[in-house]
């Protein structure tokens, strides 16, 4: 198996009809294509469920060959601050649309913008409404301020149904001439949990390890994706070595660049798999929840994670 490009790209649907598992959304989007017009849209849903794919396919069908000139992808959390975003939007919106009445600006992760920045964005949306349509994508629509929500048609993307993931993976497997066993398929669906990006990445990674993809290969791959340092960090803490676990925490936060929420989620999962008395597990999960709450409320996630490690390190 040689690497050509990520399968998420190779098999990204080019047309709305090729999008699996989203019949109702696709139908509504197609009606915009027929009318050659659309309102601002808000796509809400977790990672890997087709928000970007639908936006790209919509633009392709709306504008045909000139879709590239009429579609701009901007990432709110990668660009530094709302001003950069606004400048880019301004530049893009200034020129006329080629082969259409408007252009589309796709703003990914718009819930990463602070409420102030969202208010600035709302003004920008108003100024360019005659020439541009916005598609905002976010994980949680509740983090989008009401005035923006009221200006958008809202589309909710739930996790993809297992059937849709299976359909797509089978199509890819046929095309790549690999065999995916039933146990492998089940394992991928379990790990992906409705996230197509994760499903395709897992299958492609497994295909590097062997031609017949079974459960073992899939779990081999997914354990690679989980930073080993998390396990080491928990073990160091539980054995009472707080300082060592803190060093691993720093490397996860700084070098691996994981967020505090990532780490605490992984710790939660990992605790369930540890060899500990069940009473202790329940008690620890209560503490993990409390520290995740404080992490959201607090100022510095490292202090909260350290406090959690100290809890793990404490003898009962």
């Amino acid at each position: 198996m040689n690497f050509e490009k990520p399968w998420t790209e190779k098999y990204r649907p080019a047309k709305l009809d090729d999008v699996v598992g989203r019949p109702f959304i696709v139908e509504r989007l197609k009606s915009y294509v027929e009318r050659k017009n659309m309102p601002h849209l808000l796509f809400a849903g977790p990672a890997g469920v087709g928000k970007t794919t639908c936006a790209l396919a919509l633009a392709r069908e709306m504008f045909g060959d000139s879709w590239h000139q009429n579609f701009q992808e901007t990432n709110a959390s990668d660009e530094r601050g709302i001003n950069v975003v606004r400048e880019r939007i301004k530049d893009f919106a200034r020129t006329m649309s080629i082969g259409g009445n408007f252009k589309i600006i796709f703003l990914d992760e718009s819930d990463a913008l602070t409420p102030d920045a969202q208010n600035a964005l709302r003004r920008t949306m108003e100024i360019y409404t005659s020439t541009c349509r916005f598609i905002l994508s976010c994980n949680y629509s509740s983090k989008i301020i009401p005035p923006i929500q009221s200006r958008c048609a809202i589309f909710r993307f739930g996790p993809l149904p297992d059937g849709a993931i299976e359909e797509k993976l089978n199509m890819i497997a046929d095309n790549e001439k690999i065999v995916i066993k039933e146990s492998g398929m089940e394992a991928i669906k379990y790990i992906a949990d409705g996230d197509m990006r994760k499903a395709e990445n897992t299958m492609q990674a497994a295909a590097f390890l062997g031609k017949d993809i079974d459960e073992d290969l899939v779990y081999q791959v997914s354990s690679r994706a989980r930073p080993e340092e998390i396990v080491d960090m928990i073990n160091a803490a539980i054995s009472g070595n707080f300082l060592a676990s803190r060093r691993l925490l720093d490397s996860l936060l700084i070098e691996k660049g994981l967020s505090g929420e990532d780490i605490i989620t992984q710790v939660h999962r990992q605790i369930l798999e540890l060899e500990l008395p069940e009473e202790r597990k329940v008690d620890l999960i209560d503490k993990i929840g409390e520290h995740e709450f404080r992490l959201v409320e607090g100022s510095n996630e490292r202090i909260q994670l350290e406090a959690l490690l100290a809890r793990l390190a404490k003898k009962q």
């Binding site: 404080r294 409320e297 607090g298 100022s299 202090i303 909260q304 350290e306 406090a307 100290a310 809890r311």
Partner: peptide
Amino acid sequence: IACAYNYLSRADV
């Protein structure tokens, strides 16, 4: 340490 970190974490909140 755990006791002390509990207060540090409250302070951070």
